[in-house]
Design a protein around this nucleic acid. Structure first.
Lengths: 201, 201
DNA sequence: TCCCATCTGTACCAATCGGTACGTGTACCA
DNA sequence: TGGTACACGTACCGATTGGTACAGATGGGA
């Protein structure tokens, strides 16, 4: 059964190859159903293909999971870069604006997936290690730059960035568990207000 | 359909029943090997028994996992209660003392397990839901009490507790991923120092 | 002594898993 | 026209899974 998708075998459009279409759909499925109890057959059925095709295009389940993790990671990084351009970093409300972005309910499936893969990586699962390596380090410089633009002395910027990262992720864990946006926002305000008052220390 | 569940505790020594001994060993095994790819046979082999016994004592794999989660949760809560008694809450170094406790490498396996189960709960896994319900709420009052003893106005205590919880968990995520105790401690110091300076706001 | 409840292991079951063998259809190139 | 490389599905494989059937222990009360 061929779907109504564009050229299945066209070599001229590598950006829309069958493999890339499958990967995109697989990542989306992973975001909404998790990756912990994923089987090739279930995934293939959800994508309208057979598990044989997943093996064919990705080699193995492990390789497919690795690719999914890499894709999620790349999207996250692209998002940070985009945010750094969209938001006026020197604005006093920049931090609130950034938090409002990450707390948006539309991103929850992706954040759930992030924490799930993160936890799997902490337990030594091979396919998740890629995310673990960059989970902290890749964020420190971009966040530090934002903080410097906010007036933080460069000498403390990386420590402050590490703190900011921890606060954001801890708050997201709370938000995803409770769904209590108002309560989490109130707690976050305690942090940003104090940060702005004594940030130059 | 359903096997006849043996009611535990009918014996005279419930504290040392075979079931409790198995559960304790299973929890310990879960802390060191994770719970994501756990099979009854592998677990039974590690505990020196057969998977038949795990089914016999706990009814099903799902029920065993639920019990493991409940045990981990109970231990955590007992730990908080013990800490609140051990540490002089009005001491200026109380927060540092508490953080030093949670950051201790001996607890890392338990914290890895906590985050793994937490993430599974966020993905809807039934056996993990118990932990999710109390992951935030059960901690707010104890932590708020500590903060009040530190001088935080009661009006802000719960918001501050929520923030403190998020910072601690975010920092633990960093620590478990990087193992960089010094770096994480430095970031944490940025938080506690500012908290002490402007905590009464 | 017999009985019954608790506990444990062996052998087995159907289901599902990741992965493979093999045949087919199709688009492009010569 | 024939060839070839890719894309795809059906049917199957051995291994492993959670769970069950059943047979043996063991020990305390009658």
């Amino acid at each position: 059964m061929s779907t109504a998708q564009p050229r299945p075998g066209s070599k001229g459009a590598p950006g829309h190859s069958a493999r890339e279409r499958l990967l995109e759909a697989a990542v989306d499925h992973a975001a909404h159903h998790g990756v912990g109890d994923l089987s090739l057959r279930q995934l293939a059925a959800a994508l309208g293909t057979s598990h044989r095709m997943l093996i064919y295009h990705f080699g193995s389940k492990e390789a497919l999971l690795t690719e999914i993790v890499r894709t999620v990671e790349a999207r996250q990084r692209a998002q940070v870069a985009a945010l750094a351009e969209d938001v006026d970093l020197s604005s006093p409300e920049a931090l609130e604006r950034l938090w409002a972005h990450f707390a948006d309910e539309a991103l929850w499936p992706w954040e759930r997936l992030f924490f799930e893969v993160y936890a799997q990586a902490l337990q030594g699962r091979r396919h998740a290690q890629g995310l673990l390596e960059d989970a902290i380090d890749a964020w420190l410089d971009p966040v530090a730059n934002i903080l410097v633009a906010q007036g933080t002395p460069a000498a403390h910027a990386r420590d402050e960035a590490r703190l900011m990262l921890a606060v954001t992720r801890g708050m997201l864990l709370d938000l995803l568990a409770t769904g209590d946006r108002a309560g989490v926002d109130a707690a976050m305000r305690r942090f940003t207000a104090r940060w702005r008052a004594g940030g130059a220390g």
